[in-house]
Design a binder for these strands. Structure first.
Lengths: 234, 234
DNA sequence: CGGCATCCGGGAAGATACTG
DNA sequence: CAGTATCTTCCCGGATGCCG
């Protein structure tokens, strides 16, 4: 009898909420918990299995991932899908509404790179690297490029389609890639955000570039990081 | 002696971080803690004192507000400013970089209002109400309006400048307001987001409208909430 | 009053081990 | 592979009290 908790976890997930009508506050009720936004990020380019999400979010525990997926499903941001017979198990996918958060995450990421504390040299998941191209794109730099750039990273493939100053990123093999990068996410990040020459990475066997080399050299210059914000001397 | 903690709170605020190069993850390191974004929201329209922030964020404890302001100052998002002699004490203000998060908060808020769980009838701070007009503006509805709408809420005044389909919100008395609303934030929200007729609110003494009445009636139709997202039947 | 330190209770996050 | 179970750690929130 006395085992009944005040907050029944099954019935009313009355976890801490901001009792606030502001949309921003409600957004935090939905996706403000730790890891929630990063779980969404990992699903932005297509459905994933539990284990794959977990593998790409080092530091998250199975425990917490289960909870976040439940919350997000409850909120209508994520759906659980059974895989077709050939494969087994299930995957998690964003709903249409969940996908609408993509430009917001992009803007948030672009904003945060102005932080003096931001270090692009740490762990990079394949999905977040690909999304970063879209987020950091500056139309003025890419407006006269029309090309398809492929990426092979791990077992997965992605491609970025550049046209009219827009970068569109998708998962899958590019049927018509003009150039293809093969390497780990931090390696590609080193070229794009760290200014490390392609030749150096190739020499060390970390990166392979196939196809239009000039395009590859151009591509890695398209995403300059914004200037750091200055902390006002107090 | 053994009182030395592993995470020295004074020196290295090595609190839980995502060790992730992705900008979005870094954003969460900066502003992902509970209340952080709402503290920023309260400063978006100008500096505030500690107590005023606290009063407009019901539920936050002095304790936590102190911590958040420290973190945000540490990150370079907030500055502490001494008030000029006539007044006493100090205020907190956003840095230029902090202000750049404004459109992101707007987009986040607009996105979250699609949640079936969003209820615009709860507590509304004056600042968040004003910001919501900017966030929820749809240029197609407001493109042929050029006007200044004033608001008196509590001891504070704000005004919204509508022109060319844009809504710009500022704190302060409008020198040239075409119409002025006087009332509590939830009351104005009831008119704008709840569809409650102005006349009904005026009759109950909750709201006063001075100036161009037709503009007032028009104004409250400019911010329709987006359609709710459907939770896919599973 | 404004701002910060300290103590305490509850609950969320994290790590590890284990199960279908 | 996809989670549960359990235990520990630490953050959040409330109360109190100090200090200018």
């Amino acid at each position: 009898m006395e085992s009944q908790k005040i907050t029944d976890s099954k019935n009313g997930p009355s976890r801490r909420r901001y009792e606030d009508a502001c949309g921003t506050a409600h957004a935090l009720d939905l996706i403000g918990e730790r890891w929630a936004l990063l779980v969404m990020r990992e699903l932005m380019l297509g459905p994933k299995r539990f284990s794959d999400i977990r593998a790409d979010l080092p530091g998250i525990s199975a425990n917490v991932l289960t909870q976040r997926l439940e919350s997000l499903e409850e909120a209508g941001i994520v759906t659980r899908q059974r895989l077709d017979p050939p494969a087994s198990g299930q995957v998690y996918a964003l709903t249409e509404w969940g996908h609408q958060a993509r430009p917001i995450m992009g803007a948030l990421g672009r904003w945060a790179t102005r932080s003096p504390g931001h270090d692009p040299g740490q762990h990079f998941s394949a999905v977040s690297l690909m999304l970063s191209f879209q987020a950091m794109n500056q139309p003025s730099l890419s407006k006269d490029i029309r090309a398809v750039v492929g990426f092979r990273v791990g077992r997965e493939s992605f491609f970025a389609r550049l046209a009219d100053g827009m970068v569109d990123v998708q998962r899958g093999a590019a049927p018509d890639a003009d150039v293809t990068f093969t390497g780990a996410p931090p390696t590609i990040a080193a070229a794009v955000y760290g200014g490390v020459p392609l030749a150096a990475l190739e020499r060390d066997g970390l990166l392979a570039v196939e196809g239009d080399r000039a395009l590859a050299e151009r591509f890695i210059t398209l995403f300059p990081l914004p200037p750091k914000a200055l902390k006002p001397a107090r």
